[in-house]
Amino acid sequence: MTAEPRLVALLGPVRAGNAFEETVERLLQAIKLGVVAPGRKLPPERELAAQLGISRVTLREAIRALQESGYLDVRRGRYGGAFVVYQPPRPGPADLRRAVAEMGPGELDDALTLRMAIECGAAQVLATTELTEPQRALLSRRLADVNDAAPGDYRRLDTAFHLSIAELTGSPLLTAAAADARLRVTDLLNAIPVLGPNIDHAATQHVAMVDAILSGDPEAARRAVVEHLDATASLLRAFLA
């Protein structure tokens, strides 16, 4: 099994001096972002260890730690592997306030600013890129996936859509930065109920983003991302008011 590009970008080589801790962090990031969906398994041990640039012993220790923490279920045998069992918590007002409190003073605005800068930049770069037909089809497919998603799958597929914009630039560094920016607000977004009118509004904004990118208009792509992320920030603040 070959890993998706987003997973490759998230799970690049770790630093040798902090291999166990960073491996846990990288795997947890992929799980919490839904890059590896609930019920799916991580890439095979040999492939994943090589991708991370670590020993299989270190990888097994990291997987064991995540299994003990309730994120993975390790199954043995021919059809075994490390399966994701993490499910985002059901949203509620207390969860959102708790997530903000855990971020610390000022971190919410900082996280939203980081996301705005990275996602605007990624959309502008992609709009100036000559995309192949398979790349254009991938972006359109990710758009259809999120805009047609059931409420239970919405956040995961929304993440996949947003990360695909950075992914399609061909820059692993940009993809990793986009994933990091998204992860900083993931717990906040997961704590907001999936509301029909809001999702319909977001769908229109998603279409505007893709239309601008595919038509090669970087300024329109930037404006569409700003409108979309400003709306998301306003929704977050409304639930905190």
Rank of each mutant, 00 (worst) to 15 (best):
R97M: 04
D73P: 03
E130P: 08
T132F: 02
S140W: 00
D148S: 05
A65R: 10
Q87D: 10
E68D: 11
P151I: 01
G121T: 06
T132W: 02
R142D: 03
R141N: 09
I118M: 08
A127Y: 08
G92V: 01
L139W: 02
D153W: 01
M116F: 15
S69N: 15
R155T: 00
E102C: 02
G92S: 12
E119F: 04
L139I: 03
G106C: 05
A150L: 05
L143T: 04
T113Y: 09
G121M: 07
P151Y: 01
P151R: 01
R75T: 09
L126F: 10
L126N: 10
T113V: 07
F161S: 00
A94G: 13
L157W: 06
E107N: 07
G70I: 00
A94E: 12
T129Y: 00
R155G: 08
L72E: 03
T128W: 10
G92K: 15
C120V: 14
G70P: 08
T132R: 03
Y71L: 04
Y154K: 00
V146P: 08
A150T: 14
G104K: 07
Q124T: 06
Q87Y: 05
Y154W: 09
L96V: 06
R98Y: 14
A123D: 05
L112G: 02
C120A: 10
R142V: 03
R141T: 10
I118E: 11
S140H: 05
T113K: 11
L108C: 06
V100H: 05
E119C: 15
L96M: 15
L163V: 03
Q135H: 05
V85H: 02
A117H: 12
A111V: 09
V85T: 11
L114A: 13
L138E: 13
D158E: 10
G92E: 13
A117Y: 12
G80A: 13
E107H: 12
D153N: 14
R97Y: 09
L157Q: 11
G80I: 08
R75P: 08
G77K: 06
P91H: 03
Q67E: 13
A127N: 08
E133F: 02
R141Q: 15
P105V: 15
R141K: 14
R115K: 15
L163D: 07
Q87N: 09
V100Y: 05
D158S: 02
T128A: 13
A117T: 07
G106R: 14
L157F: 13
Q135R: 15
D158K: 00
R142T: 09
V125D: 15
Q135F: 01
G77N: 12
Y71C: 00
S69I: 03
T159L: 04
L96N: 13
T159I: 00
R155I: 01
A101F: 12
A144E: 13
S69A: 08
L96A: 09
P105D: 10
R155V: 11
C120M: 11
R155A: 05
F83E: 09
A127F: 04
N147Y: 03
R115T: 02
L143M: 07
E102I: 00
G106A: 04
A117K: 11
R141Y: 14
C120W: 14
I118Q: 11
T159F: 05
T128K: 11
L139A: 04
